[in-house]
Amino acid sequence: MEVSGRVWKFGDNVDTDLIIPGQYLTIQDPIELGKHCMEGADRDFASKIKPGDIVVAGHNFGCGSSREHAPLALKSCGVGAVIAASFARIFFRNAINIGLLVLECEEAYRRTNPQDEMLVQPEFGVIKNLTTGEEFRAAPYPPLVAGIVQAGGLVPYVRMRLQGQEK
């Protein structure tokens, strides 16, 4: 599975209120959530991005509340991957669980410009900046987490385990 698209760049501490403001938390439909994605940081983000585009950000991306609405909004508005210097841990877990691609790589953040073309190969942890020709390596997932990523998220993972229990 490869993801490629244009880079939308943000700074440090992009919090969950910027990703999906609190007033939208009664919304559970992912498509509706996607329409308000990143509204706190960039009002027109959802209408500007194309499927597969990549969010590149600094440290502590997704800090703040545990709202899963945040990775859901990013995923359903078409964001192909989020690459950050570091993630807030609840956001990171949530993203893995719902199948939003998240990679930690400070180099990629520092050496990428807005609107660059980028290619991500998650199996190898490889991030390529097609505009500058540079290549970066993301931190590998720990084994248990890799298992969930491989299963396609926590839902299929738990389903597999529950079926295992019944036998």
Binding site: S65, S66, R93, N97, I98, L154, V155, V158
Partner: peptide, 25 residues
């Protein structure tokens, strides 16, 4: 399923927040 679950640490417990999918699991 709330980030401020950390509050209960005041009692000498380990408490942490997760999202909905983790919680469902």
């Amino acid at each position: 399923g709330d980030s401020h679950t950390v509050t209960y640490g005041a009692l000498g417990a380990f408490a942490t927040g997760v999202g909905s999918t983790d919680l469902a699991g």
